Computed example of a mutant assay.
Amino acid sequence: MVLRDKIAIVTGGSRGIGKAICEALARQGARVVIFDVNAAELQNCVTELKAAGFDAEGYEVNVAQADKVEEAVAGVIDNLGRIDILVNNAGITRDTLLMRMKEEDWDAVLAVNLKGVFNCTKAVSRPMMKQRSGVIINISSVVGLMGNAGQANYAASKAGIIGFTKSVARELASRGVRANAIAPGFIVTQMTDVLSDEIKGELQKQIPLGRLGQPEDVANLVVFLASDNASYITGQTIAVDGGMVMH
C-alpha cells in the first residue's frame, strides 16, 4: 500500500473519473475525503467505499465558492490532522459553438473548472508548506492541449489548469510540495455516454491505440503521482489518451 495512512481530498469524487480515483487511492491505503456539490451522489459514494472496507468521508462543497472550500479544508485538518494529497478533479461542461455561447456558460465553466482548482489549491497550500510535504494533482484534459470545436470555455479552463500547475509547482517546490497535471483523453464516463456510437467510432479513429480509455487508466496515474515513486516529478502535464496528443 504505497499511500498507507495518507489523507487525500478528491474534488468531484462521486462519479466517473473522480470515483475511480477515490477507489484507487483507498485501495492503496489512503483515507479519502470527497468534496462534491451533489449531496446524494456524495453520500452514495462514501457509503460504497465504507462498505468495501475503506476509510472515507464526504463534504458537500461547491469548489467555486472560496469560503466553502476554506471551511471544508479547515474541517478536514481539524478531524484528521493533515492533508497529504489534493486531487482537483471537479469539472463541468457547457458545450456550444463560440458564436452561440452565453456569457453565463463561459462563467460557469471557468468558475468550477479553473477557479475551483485555485480555491482548493490555495486552501491546502499553507498546511502543506507548513508540514513540508504534499502532492497536488490537477485533472486537465487533452482538449486543453489541442482545443476542440464547441468547447472554447472548457478548453480554456483546462489549458488554464496547466499554466496554473506549473506556477504552483515552482512556488511550492522548495517546501517539498509537488504539483502535476493529468490530461485525460476520451474516457468512458457518464459525460461520454451521451455520445452516439457514430461519434465514438470517429473518436476511436483519432486514437492510435484504437480505443477509448477507462476511468481506471487515469486513477492509476493519480496513485503513481501521489506516491513517493514520483518524488522527483513536479510541474509536468501527462496525457492519458491512447496517443491522441503527442508533444
Rank of each mutant, 00 (worst) to 15 (best):
A111T: 15
V69M: 10
G75Q: 01
V76P: 04
A72R: 07
N138V: 01
G13P: 08
R15I: 05
Q65C: 05
R15L: 12
A51R: 09
K122I: 01
N88K: 07
A51W: 01
F35Q: 01
E60Y: 05
A30T: 13
G18W: 02
G91I: 08
A111G: 11
S133V: 11
R132Q: 15
G18P: 10
S133R: 15
M129W: 08
I83S: 08
T11N: 00
A52T: 09
L25M: 03
A39V: 13
A51K: 10
V76T: 04
I83C: 09
V37E: 06
K19V: 03
L98N: 06
I17E: 10
V109Q: 13
P127Q: 00
V73K: 10
G13S: 08
V46M: 02
N88Y: 05
T11V: 00
E71L: 06
G12P: 14
D107G: 06
E48P: 06
V33S: 11
V69A: 06
V87K: 01
E103C: 10
I137F: 03
G18D: 08
N113M: 02
R15C: 11
F118W: 14
K68S: 08
E104P: 04
Q28C: 08
T121L: 01
A123K: 12
T96V: 08
R31S: 13
M101E: 00
V37N: 14
A52S: 12
K122T: 07
L80Q: 15
A74G: 11
N88E: 09
A90S: 01
V69G: 10
